[in-house]
Design a protein around this nucleic acid. Structure first.
Lengths: 156, 156
DNA sequence: TATTGTTATACTCTATAACTATA
DNA sequence: TATAGTTATAGAGTATAACAATA
């Protein structure tokens, strides 16, 4: 299951000076997230999920049943225009249903179907395992600190 | 200069439970890096750089004069096929020159032009300032720890 | 007037395959 | 046979504008 992406990345045995990039937190976060997202995307394929975004959407609906598209859009920092197609695709694949909002006829409340609930639960286990594997080089306390630091950088 | 991206992101005042995503280091790294990369991309526009990748390429050449495309490709985890167009574009814009490799006629050694050196130096100051602004909520020691943790996640 | 959600569209990023010239 | 670099191409991801229906 080792991809070209991983093979290419790990064959970096040369002596290039990358220090001027590696002092940037943004650069390091981008490089690290690419590794994690790529690994997750591959593992989610067998559940019929096209990528981490599908997983994020299903997971927020699972834990916030009845959430609207606008709420999802803000919570995930996705533009409504892009979320629209993702939600439609997940509905077409039978993972979620849209129900009329009780007080706002412009909006829909989103719920997972039975299949969606099963897929999300399986995918959540895979995502957690992938993340643990990805970060296994760090100790538990280091992972905890890292997560708190990252959260502060985008949630403030 | 505040973009739709920032406006949309910061208007998240609702009470959605995102905890099941926020426990994933990969998710938080992705979210944080998106903020940093978006901010940097906007600031680099005035130097004629199309984005963080242009900046990464110029910066590695600046600090590794004579580097080849394959070395760049491995150092930045970019596929050679994608790097090819980026290097050509930077050459067309007068930022770098390609010189014949002394012992391998398949390869080119990359150098910055005078203009490229100027632009890279200005852009490096901008990138460092952008990163400091992006991470200003963290203390110096927190930023240092964060950077070491992230580096371990992709450089091992 | 403002907001929810949609369609259309464009641009960037990532990835694979096939190719040439050379090692 | 393998490697450096290129072209072509396809699929995600990201961003803007314009719109219909409703608040």
């Amino acid at each position: 299951m080792s991809s070209n992406f991983e093979a290419h990345r790990k064959s970096n045995t040369n002596s290039v000076d990358s220090s001027s990039l590696e002092l940037l937190i943004g650069y390091n976060a981008k490089r690290a997230s690419s590794v994690a997202m790529h690994g997750l995307a591959i593992k989610l394929q067998k559940y019929g999920l096209q990528g981490p975004i599908d997983y994020s959407v299903l997971t927020l609906i699972a834990h916030n049943s009845g959430i609207t598209s606008m709420q999802l859009s803000h919570a995930l920092s996705l533009f409504p225009a892009n979320l629209s197609g993702i939600v439609k695709s997940l509905e077409d694949r039978g993972f979620l249903s849209r129900q009329q909002h009780p007080t706002d006829r412009r909006a829909y409340r989103l719920h997972l179907t039975e299949i969606g609930l099963e897929v999300q639960a399986d995918a959540e286990a895979v995502a957690i395992k992938n993340d643990a594997e990805f970060a296994k080089i760090l100790s538990e306390s280091e992972r905890s600190m890292l997560n708190q630091f990252l959260l502060k950088l985008y949630a403030s």
